[in-house]
């Protein structure tokens, strides 16, 4: 696997895939906003948006339209370039992370070409995700700083420290999984799970830690400190309006989507259907790809739902509690988890 061996067909295939994934991301993100409102309503015994279109399914379009056509305000005292760069970076980093996720079982053409449903099955797969996640902080920090508003700045700093802190236990929780799979490649992580069963069974603690960290990384409640309305007005995107605000909001939902996809891939077996051997069904490659894709999507949707569910259940942490949890609880736990896994692996391999 060399990153730079390039030919045209390959490019086309990847371009299509990239386009598809970006479209999918946007679509999911849009409808997560809708789902958010719906789920919130349901959990609070309400009905949620139901005016635009049947069951209100055009609501996200309406929201988007509204954001597009609102007046664009750039504060005079702000740093113009960075003010625009902030949401752009947030959006880009959110999108890029999806490159290494295997979205479905590989598609085999009539000619026997195997087309992996993955933009890049790079050697360091999951590390790449980490790299991108760690760069994701900049969107928040730059935006918050460029707004030249003290609340934005505080929120940005909070957000950054939160994300940097939670990356650690996240990585350590993941390490335990990597001990078991022995590879960083996402495709291999999935195929190992197809054979041996899902990682969540072997790594329940790791999964919980990872999940909590994913919440924190996405700035979701109960860790949505960067946008804590009651203390910081509206958080780091306080000065933003119109589509730039939309980008920030969107980026959050795309992040949710991607982290759900990663959790599904790493812990829930990716596109694997549990308890069945789908290869024995004898379906055509197209259907296999399609089914595996829908399986993955359903897992993702499940996670997205859990995200929303948690949001409307658990109240927000205080900042010191957040840091406490991250540094004093999760990191030791993740370490212990890692050590135990390593010990067991050693024992088994002996």
């Amino acid at each position: 696997m060399y990153l730079l061996s390039i030919d045209l067909w390959f490019l086309l295939e990847k371009a299509l895939l990239i386009g598809g994934i970006i479209g999918l991301s946007f679509f999911i993100a849009m409808y997560t906003t809708y789902a958010e409102r719906k789920v919130a309503a349901w959990l609070q015994d309400r009905r949620g948006p139901n005016r635009a279109g049947p069951f209100g399914i055009f609501q996200p379009l309406a929201d988007g339209g509204k954001l597009f056509f609102k007046e664009e305000i750039i504060p005079l005292a702000s740093n113009k370039f960075l003010f625009i760069l902030g949401p752009a970076m947030a959006m880009i980093t959110a999108l890029v992370a999806s490159t290494v996720i295997p979205w479905a079982a590989p598609f085999i053409t009539k000619g026997g070409n195997v087309i992996p449903m993955q933009v890049a099955d790079v050697d360091m797969g999951i590390l790449l995700v980490f790299g991108i996640v760690s760069v994701g902080v900049y969107g928040i920090m730059i935006g918050g700083w460029a707004s030249n508003n003290k609340f934005s700045l505080m929120a940005a700093i909070r957000g950054a420290s939160q994300m940097v802190s939670y990356e650690l236990p996240m990585g350590m929780a993941l390490l335990a999984v990597l001990f078991m799979t022995g590879s960083l490649k996402m495709s291999e992580i999935v195929s190992v799970q197809v054979q041996n069963g899902w990682n969540v069974i072997y790594q329940p603690l790791g999964f919980i830690i990872f999940f909590i960290c994913a919440l924190a990384e996405c700035n979701r409640t109960p860790f949505d400190l960067p946008e804590a309305e009651n203390e910081l007005n509206f958080g780091y995107h306080q000065e933003y309006s119109s589509m730039k605000l939309g980008f920030y909001l969107f980026a959050e939902y795309i992040n949710m989507f991607i982290s759900a996809a990663i959790m599904a891939t790493v812990f829930l077996g990716g596109y694997d259907i549990p308890f069945v051997n789908e290869a024995s069904w004898g379906l055509s490659s197209f259907w296999m790809t399609f089914i595996s894709f829908s399986v993955l999507m359903s897992k993702i949707c499940f996670f997205l739902f859990v995200f929303l569910w948690i949001r409307w259940t658990i109240p927000r942490f205080r900042f010191d509690q957040l840091m406490d949890l991250g540094w004093k609880k999760l990191i030791p736990l993740a370490l212990i988890n890692m050590i135990i896994t390593a010990a067991v692996m050693l024992w088994l391999n002996k």
């Binding site: 060399y2 990153l3 730079l4 790079v122 050697d123 360091m124 590390l127 790449l128 980490f130 790299g131 991108i132 996640v133 760690s134 760069v135 902080v137 900049y138 920090m141 730059i142 700083w145 700045l153 940005a156 700093i157 950054a160 420290s161 940097v164 990356e167």
Partner: peptide
């Protein structure tokens, strides 16, 4: 084709070190 270093460079330098710098400056 030093993939590992490439990604570690991003994680460590761009993702951690420079965040700290930005943090302090802000």
């Amino acid at each position: 084709n030093a993939q590992f270093l490439a990604i570690v460079n991003v994680i460590v330098y761009a993702g951690a070190i420079m965040v700290l710098f930005l943090f302090v400056i802000m």
